[in-house]
Amino acid sequence: MINFKNVSKRFPDGHNVLDSIDLTIEAGEMVFITGHSGAGKSTLLRLIGAIERPTSGNISICGQNIAQLKPSALPLLRRKIGFIFQDHKLLFDRSAFDNVLLPLQISGFDHKLVAGRIRAALDKVGLLKKEKAFPITLSGGERQRLCIARAIVHRPTILIADEPTGNLDTAYAKDIMDMFNSFHQVGVTILIATHDASLLEKTKQRILQLNQGQLAA
């Protein structure tokens, strides 16, 4: 599903964020990526989401080589991915419902036909009663869950979460991990970057350790 071959990413200042990464993630896998801050977790996720391009090496996602992808094909690839951003990136000028509507609008669905799908997504993250609320009135945990609803509403094949439980208390964090487990059970490929040790202790899934831009064994 996701394949890295000798991938490096260098920032314009010359700093090597990722250095010769080789990595394969199979369809339906759930993988944790960990490491201290600045180890390149976010950059790795952004490369998978085709938000950034590698300085060298090959990345293929769903069988498509990112480097050879035309700019016009990039949006179509991104629609296969659900991204849960560390800073949520919710739009504050519209309701929770309309925030979740956005990916469906982008994919060209008629907004009258998808109300059911949006409510199902909101229901899954426990925000059905807040569909008319604006993000500014939501708590941190609710915003995180709204971001998840937006990432899953278009049924992506890959779900990418950058520090999904950061700044949340343990009860909220457990809720959110339960959600990811349920997505995993229906076959979604999931990548979670986290430095939350309690999450890593409990899981039986694969854990990738990033250290100064390199994968530790």
Partner: peptide, 8 residues
């Protein structure tokens, strides 16, 4: 945000 989630 729209670009990030696949808007053309």
């Amino acid at each position: 945000v729209s670009k990030l989630i696949g808007a053309t």
